[in-house]
Simulated scan of single mutants.
Amino acid sequence: MQGLFLYGSGGHASVVADLVRANGQYAILGLIDDDPLLAGGERFGHRVLGDRHALTSERTDNLFLGIGDNHTRQRLSAQLAGWRFPTLIHPTAVIGENVSIGAGTAVMPFAVIEHGATIGEHCIINNGAVIGHGSRIGAYCHVSGKSALGGGVTLEPFVFVGMGAVVTPGVTVAKNCLLSAGSMTSRDIGEGATVVGNPGRPFFNRRGMG
């Protein structure tokens, strides 16, 4: 079993810690958190070693980002380039043939990723989410629990799919979009939109993106 540092000590990091235990390939050596007040304390059974300066490759080169925010994961992965970011898959997840899953991605309990799907780096595929066959999920996306993407869906980077949201087959969702919980998206969505309702209605930021 290899050692692993877990970056973060909040709620998402706690469920990643559960995922690490269930995965069975790694043992958490300690938590990394930028809050100096947490250093030396304990969170969900693991010691907070300190900020990123506490990382030492003498013990391991494995690091996982237990951070829920998509853009923060991207920033940290760039700042911490050179570390090895494992892919963590829960044993109850169902992974089809010819599926590609990027480094640093977490696949949570009972998620389903169907044949030929591609998942980018540092994504979160949360509890019970379904990724349809041939779908393409860009880097730094979060597909929340019980959401469902039909076959051939494309999510560009930094998309957040809320709990229970549905994206119908063949739809493309451009980067930086947010699909709210319970929404249904049945047509292509331009960059930076927030989609609410069923059927989904897209709203764009003040720049008029999309």
Rank of each mutant, 00 (worst) to 15 (best):
G3K: 15
G3C: 12
Y7D: 06
S9C: 10
D18T: 04
G24P: 14
L29R: 15
L31E: 13
D33S: 14
D33A: 13
G41A: 04
R43T: 08
R43N: 12
H46E: 07
R47P: 01
R47V: 02
L49Q: 04
G50P: 10
L55D: 10
E58T: 05
T60V: 11
G68K: 00
N70F: 00
R73I: 00
L76E: 00
S77V: 00
F85N: 02
T87K: 01
I89K: 00
V94T: 00
G96D: 01
E97L: 00
P109T: 05
P109D: 06
F110L: 15
T118G: 07
C123Y: 04
N127C: 15
I131D: 12
G132H: 05
H133P: 06
C141S: 03
V143N: 09
S144E: 12
S147H: 15
G150R: 13
G152T: 11
V153M: 11
T154I: 14
P157H: 06
F160D: 04
V161N: 04
V171A: 10
V173T: 09
S180L: 03
M184A: 14
M184L: 15
M184D: 05
S186D: 12
G190T: 07
G190E: 10
A193R: 02
A193S: 05
V195E: 02
V195F: 09
G197L: 10
N198G: 01
N198M: 06
N198T: 12
R201H: 11
F203R: 09
F204P: 04
N205D: 12
N205F: 02
